[in-house]
Every structure is written in C-alpha cells, then in structure tokens.
Design a protein around this nucleic acid. Structure first.
Lengths: 331, 331
DNA sequence: TTGTACGCGTTATCAC
DNA sequence: GTGATAACGCGTACAA
C-alpha cells in the first residue's frame, strides 16, 4: 500500500508535486508529470481516500436509503440516480432501512460523521419535524415517498391525481363498485386513497367504507387476503384498485383461485408498472411513473442542496401515465 | 459541526480524554466521563469518521457489489449479509455494477483507497486471474455467482447438482423432451447446463443441441423469445427448464399465448424461488436456494479474510431444495 | 487519571 | 514550476 510520500521519494520530487499531478494542477512541467505518472503506475499507487476526504472535507459519495431492496420500481429510480450521479462524478451507495427506525438513523448518521456528502431518502420513519431539521443542516432530499409537511426537497408524481385518473379509467369502462387496497401508513398511499375518493365523488358514487381495505405491506400475500375479504362481502366489488403491482398481482391470483378472470367480471388496477404487472396472466393495468426521471431529478435536487444550502427546498411533481392492459376493460 | 477539540475545550479537558471517553477507555474517572458525555450531548457532537478512519486505518464498513438491484433473490441474500454484519458491527453498503466492467472496477477501487474494509462480490466481469490477485491483497469474497478457477472464497449452492435434481423431477413425471434456457456467459448457468446434460445422459436420453437455448439476460422477455423458438421446432419440447424464475415466467407467458397451459402439455421449471414464481398462474416449480444463509455465510467468509488473510480461501456449498408447483406435474 | 505531542495520507498555502 | 509545511479530525504512545 504505497503512499504519496513513497511515490514522491521514488520520483525524486515533493509530495506537493505528486499531489498536483494527481489533481491535474496546471503548474507542473510535462517532464515531471511524466515521471510522476510513471512511478505511480509502476508502484501501483492509488490515493487513499481517507486522507483525501479528511483534507477536502467531502467524499464525493452519496447514499440512497430505501425501505427495501426487493422493489422493482425503486431499482429503476436508482438507475436514474446513478446515471445523473455519474455526470457529477458522485459515487452512489445504496442501503436498505427495512422500515427500522434504528437502522435508518444509523445510516442517517453518515451525514453527521461525513461518511457521505448527501442522502436521497425514499420514505422515512422520521416525522416531519425531524426531517425538516435534518434537511436544514445537511443535504437531504426525498424521492418517491415523502412525508407530509416536512420542509424537504422531494420529487415524485402527483399521487392523488394518478389515483384519480386510474379510478376514472375504471369508471369509464362501466365499473361502479370500485374497491381500493391501500396503506394508511404511507403518505403516497393516503394521497392515492384521496384521489380514489374524489373520482367516486365526482361520478356521484358513494364510497363505501368496506371497499377500502388497509394493508401494511406491499406483498402479493396481502393482496390475496384483501381480495378474499372484498369478494366475501354481501355486495362484492366489480373492480379493485391496489396501490402496488404486487398487491394487484395478489388480487388477481385470489380472483383466479375463485374462478374469476381479472378483466372480465372484475377489473384490477395496479401501480408502478413493474415487470410483474406485465408477466402475470392476465397482464395488469397500472400507473406508470417515470422512474429514471424521478431518480435523476432526486439527484439534481440533492445537488442543489449541496451547492446552495441556503435556498428553500422545493417539491417536483413529474407526470404519470396509465398503462391499460388485460386486467381491466377499456374501449 | 463541532470537533473533538471544541468538546475538549468546553469540557475543560484534553482531546485525549474526550477520545478516551468516546472509545470506552477504562482509564478515565467517572466524573470526567460524565462531564465529557454531558458536553458531547449538549453540543451534539458526532465523531468525524473521516478523521477516525484515517487514524484507525479502517472503516467498519463493507460493500456488497451486485450486478443488478432488480433481483428478488439477491435481496434475500443481502438480508442475510445485513443480519450477520450487524453482529460484527459492520455497516453494509450496496452498489450495482450492471455488468459494466468500468463501473465494477470503480467500486473495487474502494478496496485500494480504503473506502471500505471488504467487498462481497456477486458475479464479476473480471477473470480468474484478476480476481485471484485482488482477493490475495484485500478482503474479497464471492457470493452466489463466482468465477471458475478463481482463488477466492465463495459461497453458493451446487448448481450442477441442483439442475440435475430439477431435470430428474421432470423426468420422473414422464417428460422426455426436456429443453433448457441457459446463459453460457455465467458460470452458475454453465454448471446448471452441465447438470441438465448429466440428468439426460443418466436417463439414456440424447441431449439435442436445439433444445439448449442461450440468452444473455435473465428477463421475462428473453424467456418469451426462447419459448417461442423452442415451440417452433419440428419436435417441440414437453418440458422447459430455465435458469431463473423470470425467464421461466416468460416461458409460461409465451406458452399461454399459444394456448398451452404450463404444467399440462408442457412442464416449466424455474430457479430461485422468487415471489414471481409464486404469484404467476400457474405457479412455477423452481429450485430454492437458502438466500439468507448464503448471505450470512458470505459475511462470515469475508470476516475470515479480514481477520486471517494468510489462510487459504475456501468454497462453501449450501443445500438447495426443489419446490414443486403447478407448472410441472408430479405424483 | 490526565495531558502533550505526534502521525495517519492528503491537499492547500506559502515561499522561492 | 517546485518544495516545505501547516492543516484536516482523530487516536495513542509517552510522559507526567
């Protein structure tokens, strides 16, 4: 593990000169540059980031903190972060907090102790105050999932409107008994529930309380359970809107088990346009979010916070799209 | 951003004492400890890891480098890594290399420049020599996917045997024209192809070249393409074994499009036991790997390398299981 | 028990 | 264009 000192000695120059060569400083003659680079190559020298970062007071590295790794949608978002980060020459690290407050705080500490220059947070167990305070002190933005009222830059889609649109698509094909599988614990899902209700209201339909099923995980098992509950009602729904594709896939699965073909007697609508929504039979109609753009924008917002911490945080909403497939009728 | 110096001044002690308190050094009186902790709390001091790491020459942090984030199976593996890492008080970071050699090398540099203490590598674009050399110099182990002949600690399953078992399950239910969707570029998939061939040989069946389809991505689209090719053969197969569940899901999808129900005329077998294999209809028979245990073992192997770099690397094979579902017949 | 002083590897500020 | 040298924040041998 050679250090800059050893390189300097071997090249018969000072450490300052080596440093200058390594950092493309103008003030160094071609000959010495040549010589230094030669030695660097020869001894296989790599700058120790620990020293460099200490001196420079930054790491050129950011963290994306997500709730779970097994999320196809987030993987697209992160691709967006990565490609935007590449242009800024930032290294991207990812960690999963698993909705564990302690784990999340452990990773957020990386801001305090300067292990990373900034954090893109997808969802959080912290409340608005904690987040506002944190974002006031360090570069921190939220992405896809944020927290109501927190004074933090964030990017995502208009969840309320997206749900409104999805439900309207179901209404347009004649469905009138539309149920929803949501998650009160997550802000984006709450907004989607609001959009769902607005669509029903606008259509002059009552929204029955028993048509709104809550679940605290976005798994296909939860979707199956929700579906069974709904179909066991005295008046079962003729359409089910779920806040994630995996939930929707579970809904479809449960319908099929009961001999009901999704898209025929009962429509199903999902959210996120993941692979799963395409691959199951029938394929699932869903709301598509511009994942990569969301991720790219998150990085831009983070960059803003890093460069201009004094400016106010801002919220960016990107357009969504409906993807109509076989699980719902449409003309 | 208070430093240890400021804490020392405020507590009217030396920086050494503060450091001692922070590092649970015995040699400090209860009173001063009390006082220091008080000040630490009051000014909200957090040790700067840049300084600490430089001094200690380590980071207590490891990296898991995976090919892609959108891999349900790997997410389980990483859970295993995380829980094992927690016990060793190591922080886990994840990055995706996307089969990009340049990106991979960028992350591997974190070993050279001491940004992390070790790396768990899932697959690699490097060859055996490069890997052997790297692992000789730094804590580096491979997990799930490794490289033939590389002198590197690794953990996974016996892929050849697992494929052998899966194909035997198909044979046991009377299938005789078994095709395989594999990927020659990946060592684990090559091993699985070998297991497939051995099973056919043992059953006295010829292995037709046209029954082995290559694909370089584990996507459902690739699975669909492969299936269409196979079913267009003069003598189409009566069973298809794919090296991933997503491929298998694509195979099923293409079969269904042709009006063929997987598990009836044609059996389908996947690999990894991901959510997708459960949620599609019909559910897909598959090979289950002990993901969490694989991840946990990977961390143990890495720990071995960190503690005893002089010892020889070793390979750990963990048991697999067949999960029989609706996409294949079985009595 | 506590403090002083040095070093970790790098970059930046001066001189020259 | 180049070289000393002082930081960066922390841990620790050594002295007291």
């Amino acid at each position: 593990m050679p250090t800059i000192k050893e390189v300097a000695k071997a090249a018969q120059v000072s450490v300052a000169t080596v440093s200058r060569v390594l950092n493309q400083d103008k003030n160094v003659s071609p000959q010495t540059r040549q010589k230094v680079l030669e030695v660097v190559r020869q001894v296989g020298y790599t700058p120790n980031m620990l020293g460099r970062n200490l001196r420079r007071k930054n790491t050129e590295r950011i963290l994306v903190l997500i709730p779970s790794l097994s999320n196809q949608f987030l993987s697209g978002v992160i691709r967006g972060v990565e490609s935007a980060a590449k242009q800024k020459e930032l290294q991207v690290m990812i960690s999963a907090a698993h909705n564990d407050r302690e784990a999340e705080q452990g990773y957020l500490e990386m801001l305090y102790n300067r292990s990373v220059d900034g954090i893109i947070l997808v969802g959080s167990t912290l409340d608005q105050e904690e987040l506002s305070q944190l974002a006031g002190q360090y570069p921190l933005v939220m992405c896809s999932e944020w927290v109501e009222g927190a004074n933090v830059s964030a990017v995502g889609i208009d969840n309320e409107q997206a749900a409104f649109d999805a439900v309207n698509a179901l209404l347009a094909s004649g469905r009138k008994k539309i149920a929803m599988v949501s998650n009160e614990e997550v802000y984006s899902a709450r907004l989607r529930t609001q959009g769902y209700r607005r669509a029903l209201e606008q259509a002059g339909l009552p929204h029955k309380r028993e048509y709104e099923v809550e679940h605290y995980e976005y798994t296909y098992r939860a979707g199956m359970r929700a579906c069974r509950m709904l179909m066991a009602l005295p008046e079962p729904p003729d359409a089910i809107f779920a806040v994630s594709d995996e939930l929707a896939a579970g809904v479809c699965k449960a319908l099929i088990e009961q001999g009901i073909i999704p898209g025929r007697e009962v429509d199903v609508f999902g959210f996120d346009n993941t692979t799963m929504s395409k691959v199951v039979t029938p394929s699932i109609s869903t709301v598509s979010q511009p994942r990569k753009r969301i991720g790219g924008t998150a990085l831009e917002l983070l960059w803003e916070r890093m460069e201009h911490p004094e400016e106010k945080p801002r919220l960016v909403l990107l357009p969504h799209e409906l993807v109509l497939r076989d699980s719902s009728q449409h003309r």
